[in-house]
Design a protein around this nucleic acid. Sequence first.
DNA 1: CCGTATCCGAAATGATACTG
DNA 2: CAGTATCATTTCGGATACGG
Lengths: 93, 93
Amino acid sequence: MEVLGGKWKLAIVKVLLTGTHRFAALQRALPTITPRMLTRQLRELESDRILRRTVYAEVPPRVEYDLTELGAGLAELVEWLDRWGREYRKVRA
Amino acid sequence: MEVLGGKWKLAIVKVLLTGTHRFAALQRALPTITPRMLTRQLRELESDRILRRTVYAEVPPRVEYDLTELGAGLAELVEWLDRWGREYRKVRA
DNA sequence: CCGTATCCGAAATGATACTG
DNA sequence: CAGTATCATTTCGGATACGG
């Protein structure tokens, strides 16, 4: 929970499970996140080795984010949580 | 994550997966939690229907906590997270 | 395009003492 | 036994503006 907790991390992982994304693409996938929060969460996930950050020395700059094998190992967990969340809403409603 | 997030909730669920517990027993199982935090987390989990709180009108007072079916449905998730956490520590170390 | 800097309010957690 | 009350600290998340 220390690694995955908070409002955004699992959402970011979920997006990256669909493939490599650039910063702006992540912003589009998570429309309400501010650039500050996105940067922070990405850096923490990188430092926890959930994802990789790749900088291409180009103009304009290009930075790509993709899951490590450790991060990719969360696929089942995310699915599990999705399922449980749906069941939860059903029972609570 | 809204239901299970935070420092203590999953730990409490994990303890209750081993059976019904009283307040003091939960404190013993989670030695660093303060009574204030334990109370708060228990009330939130109760309000989210993860666990049940049963008060017996006795002297001295007895209050028991146990998982609902919804809460018990988290067993697999907890196991999954445990496994992933162990793998995580191994890879990180 | 991909971020940083600064400031802010709210929420989470903790320490300590006390009570029916 | 099973909590409350009070106070302080820390962390989280957001708004806004700016920069290489």
